[in-house]
């Protein structure tokens, strides 16, 4: 998933059309290195993939936490911020990347202060990921980086699709507090690419919805997918999908449980293809 990054070379890349439409600011590479700041972990990943490292002034502190982030090692080389308006201002950024889920107070403060801001939405399909990658790349003046990433991702997806079995298995993703992941989510798209039918979506859950244990037991999925990351520190919420009744179901051979590191699908980006690959390996019985 680590890609080769080229030093700033051809400075001729023009400002992309998407960039022009999205904002007033559009970075045109010049003599001085740009100062891009990200206050969102998912935007961090896109910057690391697309931007010239010399242009990255700061990433969010969350990206250094290997439990939740897939880019912890790369992010260690960059200064980090905690996403507060004051520290962002102090970085004198040319462009700040945030998420639609960033703190509203911070976003409105940055807008008031006139800081160029790119607020990224959260793609839920691989097509939307491609569009976002191209949009971000054009705003930082590196459209060729976007095409490289998109090409790699689509190639990877096509390769995984060729290995798909003929009959899809049903799957249920059970998050903390027994929240099931339904239709219209990134995870739903990942399941589809991994050749799985999302049972929660079939049950009519759009977005995220609670799935009672009894409902799971009466109509079990072939594959139960449980996220693993927070289990170092216990909470009732994260223990809920580990209920003994589900374990009993698995013991009877009625269902298989697959552990999923949730950081693989926390962010929508070119790296999300790793979540598909992980599930494919797990389903084939290999250690993922």
């Amino acid at each position: 998933m680590k890609d080769r990054r080229t030093r700033k070379s051809a400075a001729g890349a023009a400002c992309g059309l998407a960039g022009l439409l999205l904002s007033v600011f559009c970075y045109a590479p010049g003599a001085r290195a740009a100062r891009f700041v990200s206050i969102n972990m998912c935007a961090d990943e896109l910057l690391l993939r697309l931007a010239d490292p010399a242009d990255i002034a700061s990433l969010s502190y969350l990206s250094r936490d290997a439990r939740n982030s897939t880019i912890a090692t790369q992010a260690a080389a960059f200064p980090v911020n905690r996403g507060r308006a004051e520290e962002v201002m102090a970085l004198a950024p040319d462009l700040v990347f945030a998420s639609a889920f960033s703190a509203p107070a911070t976003l409105s403060m940055l807008r008031r202060l006139g800081v160029p801001l790119a607020v990224l939405d959260v793609p839920t399909t691989f097509e939307a990921i491609v569009a976002q990658v191209r949009g971000v790349a054009s705003r930082i003046g590196r459209p060729e980086a976007a095409e490289r990433e998109v090409h790699l991702m689509n190639g990877r997806l096509a390769g995984l699709r060729r290995e798909l079995p003929l009959s899809p298995a049903t799957a249920l993703v059970l998050q903390a507090n027994n929240i099931a992941v339904g239709a219209g989510t990134l995870i739903d798209s990942v399941l589809a690419e991994a050749g799985l039918v999302n049972l929660a979506a079939q049950a009519g859950i759009v977005g995220y919805g609670r799935m009672p244990l009894e409902a799971i037991l009466i109509r079990p999925p072939d594959i139960l997918i449980v996220e693993t990351d927070n289990e170092g520190a216990p909470a009732l919420a994260t223990q809920a999908p580990r209920h003994p009744a589900l374990a009993a179901l698995a013991r009877r051979g009625a269902m298989r449980t697959v552990d999923m590191p949730s950081r693989l699908w926390t962010c929508a980006g070119p790296g999300t293809v790793e979540a598909v690959a992980y599930l494919r390996r797990a389903l084939q019985g290999k250690t993922p």
Partner: peptide, 21 residues
């Protein structure tokens, strides 16, 4: 104090118990 982000919300269970699940 728990590093698990869900822990803080679980005060509801401890103060207003439940037999669910």
């Amino acid at each position: 104090l728990s590093p698990n982000p869900y822990a803080a919300l679980e005060i509801v269970f401890w103060l207003m118990g439940s037999l669910a699940d």
